[in-house]
Every structure is written in structure tokens, then in C-alpha cells.
């Protein structure tokens, strides 16, 4: 069976800067896949390429067997706003909550494509159960939430569309270790209980590899290692370069 998400030899340039060079990787349905790499390695660019926020110079990306992004000019890539309909949700780096809107309104936006208000209300209740702190803050403007709460809100917002694949860009960024642990526990549940496939990008390599079953290392826009997460945790190069051992 083909992988759920397949990235085939993509290259992305910003002007003269090559952010990704001939990157190939795949995410199987049901998996948690981690991509680790240092600042500026190209991790966010890879996620943006998947949702068509940046265009490809080479290669293509397929989701559930259909091409969603391609460098070939005559083939149309699927525009960003149509990808959530297909089942991809991205939680962007830095959360990007709608700060002037309430928690509830943010969740409404996550379910923008769900036209049935009863279904939206039900999904919101599920989210409030899953993240009780959001339930308590539902009428509050999102800007008043703490960083960790905002991250939970961004994840809940992405889940509102009932995605099959959730892309998480550094969900632990700038948060206290306990909060990061809490968020990773939730990610585990999202994968195990809701059967959502997870593709996780992190600088925090240890957390990411422990939470995943497969991992990739990205260096200067190139995939340099790909293996099961257990093997990567034991790999000498990974231990030296990413785990600081």
C-alpha cells in the first residue's frame, strides 16, 4: 500500500537560498513521524510545501495517492484552502492563533468547512473535554491565553476539521518542559484514540523521537538520516548532534 503522504524529490528555493534540496520522505497512515533539525534546516519550509504555502522548484507531493503539489507548470497544485477539505491540517510554527477572536471563534474557524452547525457544536464540546482549559476559557479573547494554552488552542483548532493527517510545527516551542510534556501526551492520544496520522517537526529531538515511530533528520535542506525512531535514539550521530550526549 502506498504511503498516506509521499514527498518525492522536492526542492524549494527562496530567491537564491535553497531551503530544501531533493527531499524525499513518506508518512504511513496511523504513524507518528518526526522530522528533526536545527534552526534554519528547512523544517517549516517542508511543512509549508505540503500545504502549498510555498511552491516547489522540483518534485511533487502526493496525499492519499493524489498529487497535491507539483513543480510541473502544466499540472495544477491544490490551493492551500482546499487542502483542509482533503484531510490535512497544519498547526503552524508560533501557533498563529486569531488573537482578537475568542477561543470559541477560533475553533469555529477551524471548522470553517463544516457547514452543519450541530456537528460544529458537537466537535467543540469534544475539544473542551479533551482540553478542559479551553472549555473554561471559551469566551475569552485568545490573546489573553498563556503560551501553552494558545498551543493547545491551535491544536484543537486544527482538529476541528477532523483531519486525517495533522502537521505540527514545533508544538513545544518556547514552552516550559512540563507544558511540553502535556502537549506531547495529547499528541499521543490524538494519534492513538482518534487515529489521526501525525507528522511532527521539532528541534527538541529527544521529545520528538520518543513520541514517534519513524524519524528523519534534516540538515541544510537535505535529509541525512531516516530510520525508526528507536534506532535514531540509539544512533551515535544523532546522539552527538541532536541529543547532546
Amino acid at each position: 500500500m502506498a504511503a498516506m503522504l509521499e514527498i518525492n524529490g522536492i526542492t524549494v528555493r527562496y530567491g537564491a537560498i535553497e531551503a530544501l534540496h531533493n527531499v524525499s520522505m513518506s508518512v504511513d497512515e496511523g504513524d507518528v513521524v518526526a522530522l528533526i533539525g536545527a534552526n534554519g534546516a528547512g523544517k517549516s519550509t517542508l511543512l509549508k510545501a505540503i500545504v502549498n504555502q510555498v511552491s516547489l522548484q522540483e518534485g511533487s507531493i502526493s496525499f492519499k495517492g493524489e498529487v497535491v503539489s507539483t513543480a510541473e507548470k502544466h499540472k495544477k497544485s491544490v490551493p492551500t484552502h482546499l487542502l483542509s477539505q482533503r484531510g490535512i491540517a497544519l498547526v503552524p510554527e508560533g501557533r498563529h492563533v486569531f488573537a482578537d477572536m475568542t477561543v470559541e471563534e477560533n475553533l469555529d474557524m477551524g471548522a470553517f468547512l463544516v457547514k452543519d452547525p450541530v456537528a460544529v457544536a458537537k466537535k467543540k464540546e469534544e475539544m473542551y473535554d479533551f482540553f478542559p482549559i479551553l472549555g473554561a476559557r471559551r469566551k475569552q479573547k485568545t490573546r489573553s491565553l498563556s503560551g501553552g494554552e494558545q498551543q493547545m488552542m491551535a491544536i484543537a483548532r486544527a482538529l476541528m476539521s477532523s483531519p486525517h493527517l495533522i502537521l505540527l510545527d514545533e508544538p513545544g516551542l518556547g514552552l516550559a518542559p512540563l507544558v511540553v510534556q502535556d502537549i506531547f501526551n495529547k499528541i499521543h492520544l490524538i494519534n492513538q484514540q482518534d487515529k489521526v496520522t501525525v507528522f511532527l517537526v521539532e528541534q527538541n529531538a529527544r521529545m520528538a523521537l520518543k513520541a514517534s515511530n519513524k524519524g528523519y533528520c534534516l540538515e541544510n535542506g537535505n535529509i541525512v538520516l531516516a530510520d525508526s525512531s528507536d534506532a535514531l535514539l540509539r544512533n551515535d550521530k544523532v546522539r552527538a548532534a541532536y541529543l547532546g550526549e
Binding site: V51, Q53, Q85, P92, E105, D108, M109, F112, L113
Partner: peptide, 24 residues
């Protein structure tokens, strides 16, 4: 309204609104 909220979301953050499925 759904579209009205989408309009506010778009004025706050276009790129993220697109991720929500909003046709900017």
C-alpha cells in the same frame, strides 16, 4: 455569521485563514 467571522479571521491572519479552508 460564519462568513463574517471568516472575514475577521482573514483580516487578522490571511495565511492561517487559508489553512482553515477559507478562500481568501
Amino acid at each position: 455569521s460564519r462568513m463574517g467571522k471568516a472575514m475577521r479571521a482573514t483580516s487578522i491572519d490571511q495565511a492561517t485563514s487559508e489553512l482553515m479552508g477559507i478562500d481568501v
